[in-house]
Amino acid sequence: MIGLNAAGPMEQFEIVPLVPLSLGTIDISLTNSALWMIIAVAVSAAFFLAAIRRRALVPGPLQSTAEVAYEFVADMVRGAIGQEGMKFFPYVFTLFIFILTANLLGLFPTIPGAPHGLHTFTTTSHIIVTFALAILSISIVIVYGFYKNGLGFLKLFAPSGVPIWLLPLIVLIEFVSFLSRPLSLSIRLFANMLAGHVILKVFATFIVMLFGAGATFGWLSIFPFLGIVAVTLLELLVAFLQAYVFAILTCIYLNDAVHAGHH
C-alpha cells in the first residue's frame, strides 16, 4: 500500500474483479478481495501445517510460534469463558488467525508496477467482511444461548434489581445494545484498518509530492518517510491488537451464552 503512485488514499480499498463468476444471478466474481482472502488462508494454513509437520516434543521455531498462538488463544478462551468455553476454541482460534493474517498481509507494500487490482489489499478494511465475521460470532452466541438456556437466555435483556415499571425501557435498551454488538465489533476492526491505511497512503502521497517539488523541498520527504516507518510499526501493533480485541470480545459475548443465568 506504500506504492509510490499518487493515487488517492481510497483507491487501495477498491474492489476489482479478476475472474468473473456468477451463481445464478448473484455475482460471485473472484475479486482482489477474494484473492487476498485466499492468500491469507493459504499463508496461515501453510504456516500451521508446516509447524505441526514434525510434531516434536522439543519444538523448533516454527512449532514454538504455533504453540504460542495456541496457548495464547486457549488462555484467552479459558480466561473469558472458563473450561466450558473450550468447545468454542477452534472457532475463536480460526477467527483470530484469519483476522490477524489478513491485517498483517495488508501491511506489506505493494510491489511497484503491479497491474491494476493486484495491489496489496486488506480484506478486513471492508465493513462487509468484518460485519459478516461479527454476525457469525453473534449467531453462535444466540444459537448456543438458546440451546443451552432455552428461553432463560432472554434473561440477558432483563438485569436483576430493576424496578418493574422501568423494565420495558431497560429491556428495549438492552435489546438495542445487544444488536449493536456485532456492529461495534465490525466498525472497530474496519475503522482501525481503514484509518491506518489512509494515514499511510497520505504519508506516501506527501513523499511523492515533495519529491516532485524538486531540490528545494525534496529533502523534506524524509519527514513523511519517517512518518511511514512510525505508522507502519504502530499498524503492526494495531493489526495484532484488533485481531485480539475481536477474538476476546467474541469470547466475552460467548460467555453470556454459556453463563446466561448469572446476570
Binding site: P17, I28, A34, M37, I38, V41, T94, I97, T123, L133
Partner: peptide, 20 residues
C-alpha cells in the same frame, strides 16, 4: 461487491476452519 465478498469469505474462512 457484497455478495462476492461474502461468498469468498465463507469459502476461505470455512476452509481455514476445516484445516484448523
Amino acid at each position: 461487491t457484497y455478495p462476492s465478498q461474502l461468498f469468498w469469505l465463507a469459502v476461505t474462512f470455512g476452509f481455514l476452519y476445516w484445516i484448523m
